[in-house]
Design a protein around this nucleic acid. Structure first.
Lengths: 131, 131
DNA sequence: CTTGACCTTGTAGTTACTACAAGGTGCATA
DNA sequence: TATGCACCTTGTAGTAACTACAAGGTCAAG
């Protein structure tokens, strides 16, 4: 699979894919005789993962950490455990925030369909008292 | 409430708060006699909202749109409805992805606590077939 | 054998901050 | 009264994570 195909399949710019390779986010692809990058299905899966994780607000550093979990055979279980705990906490917090936002958007939709403007509590949906 | 206090309360740099004001994300604060910015509880709520939304992967443009929903009295219901539908779709997709990631992280934690290294499917958790 | 879509490396621009610097004001406290 | 800290302004520059463009090479279709 060449870079353009991979780009299309993932909605990523070819430039961004090469950037990920430079940054070590995506492993370097094999090269064809004419020096073109030749991607595998694993590359595809990793890139989809990276793009989703980025869209969910994870930094590159966090994405790197998450990817590193993939080959945790060589690391002590305790370290992996700690990292996973930390990521899990962040994921759970994000889900809570998004669910709250979802509730509010659904509420707005209902009141809009009823054709009467209800109070909009969208800011409050995320700005409720800190946990 | 002065800028330093607001910064502390929200974990935002004072520079960033002034930047948000320049960008029109945060309404300009009142000024004291000595020209200090004087923030209200609404400012606080808005800033918490902005920071959370940004952490959830929304762009500044999307945050602007979401904030605009707060004063939708002056806009036709149909427009608001469309925007809300769109945002709702994105929020729902994010929740699905995060839930999938959460499942995988929890699975890793269990297998780690059992002190045997299980297969890591973290990439697959987000890279499953596109919907 | 040319056209156009692809590929390469490299540089520069964009977004959303973040950090200084320089120079000034406000205000509590030793 | 002096010290020191938080704040004000404008401005420049750095960072992260892309994104675009330039200059030139490769390749399959018509």
């Amino acid at each position: 699979m060449r870079i353009g195909e991979l780009a299309k399949a993932t909605g990523t710019k070819a430039e961004t894919i090469r950037y990920y390779e430079r940054e070590g986010i995506l492993p370097a692809a094999d090269r064809t005789d004419s020096n073109y990058r030749d991607y595998s299905d694993e590359h595809l899966a990793t890139l989809i993962f990276v793009r989703r994780a980025r869209a969910l607000g994870f930094t590159m550093a966090q994405v790197r950490e998450l990817l590193a979990l993939s080959d945790h055979e060589d690391k002590p279980c305790r370290d992996v455990d700690q990292l996973v705990q930390r990521q899990l906490g962040e994921v759970t917090r994000k889900i809570a925030d998004l669910t709250s936002l979802q509730d509010e958007l659904q509420h707005m939709l209902r009141s809009c369909q009823a054709d009467r403007i209800g109070e909009c509590r969208i800011v409050e949906s995320l700005a409720r008292p800190l946990r």
